[in-house]
Write a protein that binds this DNA or RNA. Sequence first.
DNA 1: GTATTTTCTGCAATCGTTTGCAGCACCAGA
DNA 2: TCTGGTGCTGCAAACGATTGCAGAAAATAC
Lengths: 347, 347
Amino acid sequence: MKFQKNTRKKSHNSITIVDVAKEAGVSYSTVSRVFSGFEFVNEDTRRKVVEAANRLGYVVNLQARSLAGGRSNIVGLLVPGIDNGYISEIVKGIDQELANSQYDLMLYTTHRYAGKEAYYVKMIANGLVDGLLLIVPLVTENYLQALPTQDFPYVLVDQADSERPSTTVDVTNWQGAYEATSYLLGLGHKRIGFITGLTQLSSSTERLDGYRAALEHHRIAVNPDLIIEGNYETNGGYLSMLRLLDRPIRPTAVFAANDLSAFGALEAIRERGLEIPRDVSVIGFDDIPEASIVYPKLTTIRQPLIQIGQVAVRLLLEKLDDPEKEARRVTLATELVIRDSCAPPRE
Amino acid sequence: MKFQKNTRKKSHNSITIVDVAKEAGVSYSTVSRVFSGFEFVNEDTRRKVVEAANRLGYVVNLQARSLAGGRSNIVGLLVPGIDNGYISEIVKGIDQELANSQYDLMLYTTHRYAGKEAYYVKMIANGLVDGLLLIVPLVTENYLQALPTQDFPYVLVDQADSERPSTTVDVTNWQGAYEATSYLLGLGHKRIGFITGLTQLSSSTERLDGYRAALEHHRIAVNPDLIIEGNYETNGGYLSMLRLLDRPIRPTAVFAANDLSAFGALEAIRERGLEIPRDVSVIGFDDIPEASIVYPKLTTIRQPLIQIGQVAVRLLLEKLDDPEKEARRVTLATELVIRDSCAPPRE
DNA sequence: GTATTTTCTGCAATCGTTTGCAGCACCAGA
DNA sequence: TCTGGTGCTGCAAACGATTGCAGAAAATAC
């Protein structure tokens, strides 16, 4: 580890409210009032100040404002990574919604600080951001326990929190999984495999439960040999599918807990010389953009990803606006999207 | 536009260096020195301070540090949007490389401030971020002219700047396009269509030039009717391809300026009842992750996207470390990736 | 004409750091 | 014993805003 050169030279060529005040012939507090709004300022004075500011090219210094006023107008976004259609769609929604507000986005990929979550969260939440958006945090606890105050504004996306009342937005995971499985059953499948997601995540267990419930409802015994662990990633789906195909009784259909896993499954099936959906049907979950460009186009359960992001932001803004607002959970509906990857089983 | 409630209540329960100093029995400057490094502090004192800080749960306040010291340890990232495999791969590289540094990432999607680029850049660069990464900025000028100082650190990704010496990382666009076209020619194609990107972007014109050069080198006249404008987006590619197919002389192969356009072309071709690659070959550019999951798998020119991001960060860090460092341009090599979307033309 | 309110403006303190400068202890060299 | 460094520490002044309080000016009431 090398020493960083200590080149903290201040290049203070920047224009401050004092300069603007001088230029406009008023006091600096007046300038501040003009720009932070919300106080009586004579219309003429305001105009003079604005003109002076424009002339000088003044822009507010966010850190100073934040230090003095206690708000940064930045919201922090914690994501595992963005190289993932699922997450980037949600982020798109977040970004869209945020664009209508006065907030900016600070992006943190959580893999960066494995083991130091608490420290980072503390630092971030200690003034740098006014609120936090957490997308599928693996160990929610690590993040939340480090929040500076009891009711620091945050919202959880697609991850339930059993420990405390947390504002959350998620989807009907159980119902979605139930519907996916029922669809397969309706096509005539009896041996339906299931590739799980990351079992720590609530979405994964909810989907598994939905799968089970649908089978039971159709009086088909849940066969543990048909349930195999995945990890919500393509490669995980690929490996799990391979294992599934090697089992003595081969499934005629597979429900993958998310689209990425389903893509992996597609590949594994093809690699074994089987055809989709003739030999094996595959259904996914999420409906990420790639789902409609893979071959065959993936039948899946759609989550309104963009909307999830938007709602998350709206919930956060609400809380930011009114700190008294208590936690609530918004659950959005999923929807079956039929494409080309499912068919009735062969005789 | 509603008035925002002015609830700037300060919830100053946070621990400052003064608290730590008191706890450790030293002066606050000593505490500051312990945490900002680089000065002589007695080992015992240092330990005392660190312990006191841990006991109290102290974390540095970034805005205060930034205000006082002039550095924020944040780099700004300007992207058009992240719902795009091309960009999110680059961002992945950026994120990876940044993870090894002390910098954090502030994400700005440029569509947010259409028309107010200058204002935003000024604000961001005015202390909030120490450096800027610009990914394919449409009008580079708008951003750069607003930089606070002559040599504010920034790096341009995949966009040349003819106005001034800018540190840039890009790829061999011309050669890549030349190679793609040559490959098609080598397969025996004579009528090769070209779907352009956004013509304002240097990458687009460079690729067009490469395409032209390859044809000329093979003594095939460049036919303007085979060149059609796209916009680097799937839908643009789709529409352009449709128009191309409606022309009197139909191409036997198409080179799309990026993969997204190629995907659109694939769809258009299929929609016309033609088969790929039997009736029409398609080659793309970029090799985004989706390129290998579409059907048929796309033959394309690979850009080392992740590496681009990494190099961009490295260049920025260099400049951050040594402000005297002068601008340079790094050009990474592209590479032909042969998959399933190209074949010799039918008789 | 005086008293009271309303509207606007300015002063000064504050937010939590960094850092130049000065001071102090301690030790080595003469 | 005196001098001159080193190494370390502390004081105080920034950094650029916000905001409570007080006061001036203008408007209104009596």
